[in-house]
Design a binder for these strands. Structure first.
Lengths: 221, 221
DNA sequence: ATTATTTATTTGGCTTACCAAATTTATTGA
DNA sequence: TCAATAAATTTGGTAAGCCAAATAAATAAT
């Protein structure tokens, strides 16, 4: 018995979950095959096995979808993937755009204990370096209302989850301020005069123009 | 093509290396099969493939051994295994005896860059939590002369690599002192009166009885 | 409604990594 | 030396995951 046989199954579930999230209306055999870059015959066979395990179901109109059980499993893989991405970026200083491939390998490591400890070691992050939320151990995703920093409440813990602008200049600017997706900040003050923002980040105060603040999308922690 | 096909090959090489190190005189098909817990027919087939790749060779007397190329590859796996063990113990607070199984999964993650960064992140450790030396990126093992602390030179960086006594009391005692296999210490003084040792560990001075020192085996870094 | 196109499904095949049960080839002990 | 034992090798099979090509079924477009 090969201990890595589950990689394949996990990849099907993860891909199905990704398609579900990305609003793709009807995930059929062809769509799934394309997404996985596999032959439809292969996918058909795999879907049958997953159905037998009650991880997916095929509706009368041939739509393939996750069952609750399957979704939970998918979310646990997503959780592992995103935690490893945080590890790679925060601890090993990878760039956020370099970590996906590696996390795809790491996400298949089997150990709940490991993930629990990794989570703690990383300080229980709520988003990965791309700004995507990390499901909790029960596969729950905290539902988040993403909003521009300009409309966020004062004195609340916020996490930067997306950028309204990804020009080189803006990225370099953020880099200089040591801000990035995943950074936790708190608005301490908004200047009446020019609506500029003062935010606290790791015991450090940063001033941001209203323009900059408007391009930082945040979630309330 | 399955990206995890190499697990199998890596396991053969690693096992062969372990047998070589453990002084087993003649590694034949049977010995290797037993060590891997696989059927001899399976192993025979695998050894042929590895031979074709010039990773192992079978001598006229049927002894199976690593080629230089194979040994180098084996050492890179051992390096990964041991670095991950250090990570698990030092960073995720696993006990040294809990990490082997996990490291067996992690050692197959494919990325030289990852390992380079992990090594740096861990502070370039020279031994794993079991006291086994970590090969360098070129597959070289620093040849070490392990000796009791009592015969080690003063004012040299030392690494604890083994214990002369693994009684619960001794382990608890070391634990209290925050010493463990892998700890780096330096002898600052030996007391004339009772031959007790004063060692420095992470900017902290510790006094050890001669008895304790005699049960700590160290390598010079 | 009928053809053209897309999807779904089947069929036959491949490779890797396994195994059990012969069979052949040493090796060894008496 | 010769049978008994052990090791090596061969043979025939299994399961997982994959593919290409053929066929069937459904959908769309005229």
């Amino acid at each position: 018995m090969q201990h890595f046989a589950h990689h394949s199954e996990e990849n099907y579930l993860k891909t199905l979950y990704k398609l579900e999230v990305s609003q793709v209306k009807k995930v059929n055999n062809i769509a799934l095959s394309k997404s996985l870059d596999l032959n439809p015959a292969t996918v058909l066979e795999a879907v049958r096995k997953l159905s037998a395990k009650k991880l997916v179901e095929t509706l009368p109109d041939k739509t393939i979808q996750l069952t609750e059980k399957g979704r939970k499993k998918a979310l646990s893989i997503v959780r592992k993937h995103r935690l490893w991405e945080v590890f790679l970026v925060d601890k090993l200083a990878f760039k956020w755009n370099e970590v996906h491939k590696l996390a795809e390998q790491l996400e298949h490591i089997e150990s709940d204990d490991l993930i629990k400890r990794l989570d703690a070691f990383l300080g229980y992050p709520s988003v990965d370096p791309h700004g995507d939320p990390i499901p909790d151990e029960n596969g729950k995703l905290k539902k988040t209302k993403t909003q521009p920093l300009t409309s966020a409440p004062l004195k609340k813990q916020l996490t930067i989850v997306a950028l309204g602008n990804s020009s080189d200049e803006f990225l370099r600017y953020l880099d200089k301020l040591c801000l990035a997706i995943g950074s936790n900040i708190e608005v301490t003050e908004i200047e009446d005069f020019d609506k500029s923002f003062t935010v606290q980040h790791k015991k450090r105060l940063i001033t941001l123009s209203n323009e900059a603040a408007n391009n930082l999308f945040v979630n309330i922690l």
